[in-house]
Simulated scan of single mutants.
Amino acid sequence: MTTPLKLGIPKGSLQNATFALFKRSGWIINVNDRSYFPEIDDDTIECTICRAQEMSRYVENGTLDAGLTGKDWIAENSSDVHVVEDLIYSKVSARPARWVLAVPYDSPIKSLDDLSGKKIATELVAFTKRYFEERDISVKVEFSWGATEAKVVSGLADAVVEVTETGSTIRAHGLRIIHELMRTNTQLITNRRAWENPPKREKIEQIALLLKGALLGEKMVGIKMNVPHDKLEQVVTLLPSLNAPTVASLYQSDWFSVETVVGTGVVRDLIPVLLKNGAEGIIEYPLNKVI
């Protein structure tokens, strides 16, 4: 690669989660609190920190070759970028966030049609306007600089369009959700010129592969156990795996070592069942990446 890949890292709530994801993927990123140009232990990459809301514009116009931002901000800016990979991670949980319409608990508004002629506060202005225009509902959409939930509580707006993962913050502000406008997650994007450049495309594909592998590894664990010959078949039938479990005979013994990979939400229920069916010496271990 003649010039380094210019990679955008989202500033704000996703920044630390992104650094952690890259670390699990094999890259160490270090940043000074006052710097917008983090150091990365890869001479073929140059990092720049910018707001997720602006990332797709900088990628589209070539200021950055690639970057990580939300599907929501790509839609908001109507950016013409190539989406390389969906990366579902956040500062709270490994689930997509939701942009929802919320009103006060005691509001008479029950549906989108009830908002005709009303005022909506949101940071996602362009997308929200298009959403209601497509449904032929006339609303006034105002930009909110922050504390959006407070706008409707204080009577400055009739409803808000706000992002949430669990809905708990919205409920804590005395609001109720009446509609979901979109689901969003972090995406690795690139501009089309960089994607058509073979060395840069290869680097972007490497990043996508390892980030995705790190996210999958976070959702899975490895388990290993010893199983006697007469219990082997019934234990193996209990084991989910990517292909098939690894089975190896133990030295000078009629016992076998059995190893596989399972989801983190499965293993807690699986281990007691394996013990009841003859497995012994069960070891659970974390996975860095699953490719």
Rank of each mutant, 00 (worst) to 15 (best):
L112C: 12
L112H: 15
D113E: 15
D114G: 14
D114V: 14
D114T: 15
L115W: 10
S116H: 15
S116R: 15
S116A: 15
S116C: 13
S116F: 06
K118L: 09
K118N: 07
K118A: 09
K119I: 15
K119T: 14
I120A: 01
T122C: 03
T122H: 02
L124K: 02
L124N: 06
L124S: 06
L124E: 02
V125C: 01
V125P: 04
T128K: 03
K129Y: 04
K129S: 05
R130C: 00
R130F: 00
Y131R: 05
Y131T: 07
F132S: 02
F132E: 02
E134C: 01
E134Q: 13
E134L: 13
R135F: 06
R135L: 09
R135V: 08
D136P: 00
I137E: 08
S138Q: 14
S138L: 10
S138K: 15
V139T: 12
V141T: 09
V141D: 01
V141N: 05
E142C: 09
E142D: 11
F143V: 08
F143I: 04
W145T: 06
W145E: 10
G146S: 05
A147T: 09
A147V: 02
T148S: 13
T148I: 14
T148N: 06
E149K: 10
E149D: 12
E149M: 09
A150M: 12
K151S: 07
K151R: 09
K151D: 07
V152H: 03
V153Q: 08
V153E: 08
S154R: 13
S154H: 13
S154V: 07
S154K: 12
S154L: 12
G155I: 01
G155N: 05
L156W: 10
L156Q: 14
A157Q: 04
A159Y: 04
A159S: 06
V160T: 08
V161K: 01
T164H: 08
E165Q: 13
E165W: 05
E165M: 11
T166V: 02
T166I: 00
T166G: 06
G167V: 08
G167D: 11
G167Q: 12
G167C: 09
S168E: 11
S168C: 03
S168H: 08
S168Y: 11
I170S: 02
I170T: 13
R171E: 07
R171F: 04
A172Q: 10
A172I: 00
G174Y: 08
L175M: 08
R176M: 09
H179Q: 15
E180V: 14
E180I: 09
E180N: 11
E180S: 13
L181F: 10
L181R: 00
L181N: 02
L181A: 04
M182W: 07
M182Y: 05
M182R: 14
R183S: 03
R183E: 10
R183I: 00
T184S: 15
T186W: 01
Q187K: 14
Q187T: 03
Q187W: 01
I189E: 04
I189H: 08
I189M: 07
T190N: 06
